[in-house]
Simulated scan of single mutants.
Amino acid sequence: MPDPALRTAIKNGEFILAPGVFEAISALLADREGFKALYVTGYGTVASALGLPDAGLATYSDMLGRISTICERTTTPVIADADTGYGGLLNVAHTVRGYEDAGVSAIQMEDQEFPKKCGHTPNRRVVPLEDMLRKIEVAADARRSDDFLIIARTDSRTGLGLDEAIKRGKAFAKAGADVVFVESPESEDEMKRICDEIDAPLFANMVNGGRTPLLSADRLKELGFSIGIHPALGFLAMGAALQKAYADLKANGETTDAIDLYDFGKFNDLVGFPAVWEFEKKYAQV
């Protein structure tokens, strides 16, 4: 079931800072830090699970399996990327129910044409506004709990301009979206205009190396955003750390002091070995 804490935090005007997670280890580590939400990134999940780009190649089933594991192993409310809803209106309804049953607290769906692409890459195209409004209506009707939030994203800024993106954002809110997400504004002034003109809780995407300026949580809240995600932080940090570690091993034939490793004992705790050892003490024959 969705966690009501996310809706309550937004209603109370709290700012929600959410790191991107993409598989169980990243989720377990982020869950310990006390964030108000975790964001399951489609880009990172597809790259981690399939080794492929975020270009509409992952299926609903590919994503749901990973998302279900993350929700099961964490206690923090989860916001999860659902791309375009994985198909037509019936698929949208099925996706909403599946994500909600998995324990997701907020689903993010966008107005791109299929196959979709990462929101900070070129050549994205969007569906007619009326088609996306229908998806929002279906998503709102399909959810079982009002604590399950619908985040509606428009990718129209890059191809059609900011005026169109704001127009769509306003329409999304009117259609029943709980949170509006205008993807990839290109300046702080554009971000301010989004907040000034759209009367709804708003979502900011802080992508390291992306099209949007990286602002602090305090500044995002000051502008008027309700949620700020850092979807790429985890997998970019992992990529840098693994590249350095593997290169060190190849160059030296062993791991040197140049590599900072997570303590093995603490990692055992992270993944739950103490519970296994307690079980063995109680039940296993020795």
Rank of each mutant, 00 (worst) to 15 (best):
F114M: 10
V40E: 08
M109S: 05
T69C: 09
A275W: 00
A152T: 06
S187G: 09
P77S: 12
T212N: 04
G103K: 11
V126G: 06
L28T: 07
H94M: 09
A240P: 06
K282S: 13
R124P: 02
F273H: 12
A93N: 05
Q285K: 15
L29E: 00
D263L: 03
T74V: 11
D101F: 09
K192D: 06
G209Q: 02
D111G: 06
K167D: 07
N252K: 14
G34S: 09
D163E: 15
L242Y: 13
D147N: 14
I166K: 06
A5I: 01
A106W: 06
R66K: 07
K174G: 05
G239P: 11
A18Q: 10
R143N: 08
A177G: 14
L160S: 11
G44N: 03
F279E: 11
P231D: 01
A217G: 10
A93M: 05
K116M: 04
T45A: 12
G42N: 01
V127M: 15
F264M: 14
V138M: 01
A9I: 03
E186W: 01
D81R: 13
E222V: 03
L38E: 01
R143H: 01
T8M: 11
P231V: 05
I229D: 03
D83Q: 09
G224H: 14
Q112E: 06
E33N: 02
G51R: 11
E23V: 06
I10S: 05
L215D: 06
D147Y: 11
G253W: 03
A140H: 14
L64T: 00
M63Y: 07
D248Q: 13
L133R: 03
L90T: 13
E137I: 05
G176I: 02
D189A: 13
V179P: 02
K174L: 09
L242M: 10
L50D: 04
P128W: 08
A245R: 10
Y43S: 07
G42S: 00
P115V: 08
D101W: 00
A251S: 14
I227H: 04
T75L: 11
D263M: 03
C118S: 09
P185Q: 10
G13Q: 03
R168P: 08
T74E: 00
R124I: 10
L57R: 08
E113Y: 08
L242T: 13
T45K: 07
D155M: 02
P53Q: 07
V127H: 00
L160N: 12
I151E: 02
D178P: 04
P128H: 12
D257I: 00
A18M: 05
R211K: 15
E137N: 08
E222S: 03
M63W: 02
T255A: 09
L202Q: 14
E113N: 07
A80L: 01
E72H: 15
A24V: 12
T41N: 09
N205F: 04
E254H: 15
T75E: 05
P19C: 10
V46F: 08
T255D: 00
F35Y: 15
R193P: 03
P4R: 14
A258T: 15
N268L: 12
F267M: 11
E188R: 14
I166E: 11
Q108F: 01
L64I: 14
A37F: 10
P53E: 03
A139Y: 09
A200N: 04
L50S: 09
P53R: 03
